[in-house]
Nucleic acid binder design. Sequence first.
RNA 1: GCGGUUGUAGUCUAGUCUGGUUAGGACUUGGGCCUUCCAAGCCUACGACCCGGGUUCAAAUCCCGGCAGCCGCACCA
Length: 573
Amino acid sequence: MTDSKVMNIAKKRGFLWSSFEIYSGSAGFFDYGPLGAILKSNIIEKWRKYYIIQEGFYEIESPTIMPEEALKASGHVDHFTDPMTECKECMEVYRADHIIEDVIDQEVEGLEDQRLTEILSENQIVCPKCGGHLTHVWSYNLMFQTLIGAKGKKTGYMRPETAQGIFIPFKRLLRFFRGKLPFGVVQIGKAYRNEISPRQGIIRLREFTQAEAEIFVDPSIKTHPKFDKFADDTLTLFSAEQQMNSRELEKINAKKAVEEGIISSEILTYQLCLAARFLSDLGIPSDVIRFRQHLPTEMAHYAIDCWDVEVQTDRFGWIEIIGIADRTDFDLKSHSTHSKEDLSVFIEYDKPKTITKLGVKPDMKKFGPLFKGDAPKILDSLKNLDATVIKKGFDEEGKFKLEIEGKIYEITPDIISFEELEEIIRGEKVLPHVIEPSYGIDRIIYSVLLHSYKENEDRTYLKLEKEIAPIGVSVFPLVNKDELVETANNIRDELRNHGIIAEYDGSGTIGRRYARADEIGVPFAVTVDHETLENHTVTIRNRDDLKQVRKPIKDIYNILVNLLEGRIDFEDI
RNA sequence: GCGGUUGUAGUCUAGUCUGGUUAGGACUUGGGCCUUCCAAGCCUACGACCCGGGUUCAAAUCCCGGCAGCCGCACCA
């Protein structure tokens, strides 16, 4: 299996280690070793080039520990849980909702634990395996809980996603972007989920790194001004319809996917294309990537369309590495309700609209004495009412009954008059919709390693893209002669002065040195040989085809910088 | 979380059943020799019984518990 070969190299050469090894480890945690950490940072840096530089989004950084209220509002405290029940006899643990649905054939999702427990006993549901009694239902929340502060004992949680850290300061962000949609904000950082049983290596972690972008858009404008640049890209889609009819993947032109309504909007399609290009830039071939649409049954209640970018693996099958969703206004609406903050955006019309409407004008001389202390709230209530309703009351019954907090007030024509008001409406307040590409960085790193692994009879190597390879250049003496060793070390130092991560290796024979460098995907090697001493030239070796070219030492620094930054190709030097 | 199974240097493995010398080998890695371009050879060195308890004169070996890996079930907002 490629998986085991790659994970072997990853462990042996310092990309990935399972954490806390000397204390026998803890499932769901991984260390990035020296090479892994550089690879990760190179990949994240590339992500920033895409989303921050190219798309013009801005990055923020928010705490990984969040107070309970914030996650209550987002729904995670109550809903990021699974209802569980256990058999008292054989100790088997089940999802309570699943075994209920199996027996009574009724949707019970979202019901309280108490209610589920009742349903279990009402229907005399027993353990499907041994027929034993089941315990009461409890919620297993996947968030890590902690306490904030020594005294107040305020409950906090490790964030289960970075997204919430962007929604919460929305008002500040909106002001930063000077009140105009659309705008995008990204966050790269750790997120935490206390998985019940993480057993898939780096695929299922309890602490993992996300790179998320939240793009806030006008709900009525889901096009993208730069869609043209991706319109001809080909996407491999596995739509909900295809999945339900168990049909094949469909390769389709991006523009067509929008036109045929397979993907719900142009802006979502744009994000799919952007993700595809990013992955391709990381060296993941397009034939191991597909876009799988969430089925209506699996779609989170807040999303109207969601596509997972999946990568094919030999060990786990298709795994999700990116989720791209239209989250609508769910999050902002929810935070707005809980925090009582107005999180809407004023969207100005192209042309102001003028409308005439009936306004209510109370006669305060009579109004005040009549209602005394209640007057202010009556006024407030009247202002929010449609004046025509009041007028209708007067016309039909000669009065209007206004009910506030259970109390009824009689409004009569002598205390108010009506007036025609002309109002200019320049725009309206709307809650933005959110388009969210959410990257699982650890899974992407796994995919990159997995699909860069190459082997043939002679050698094994990682074909890492030169821009993300942890080590840029290896420098070797052809044989261990003092003069060659010294020159090689000098070249290594000078490469470092040019900003390249370079290593010297003088151990074993030249072949072994190349092999060691290949195994960790070093794209280029510089070899100092006997000719170097005569004419100050060295060879540059290209990892992928083993070709070598000879160049003067003084020229190689700029050549290698240009090669590594992708400005020139090896064939051109 | 349940059941099965496994755990010996960085890696692969012998030894475990049947307790008993200094836990053996190969590869890798470090140092050296040799070597004028792709894991060669020679010398040399470093390096391990998952953790904790128990049984025993004596535990890598037997027993119990924990942890971790693998497989199956379950789970994956």
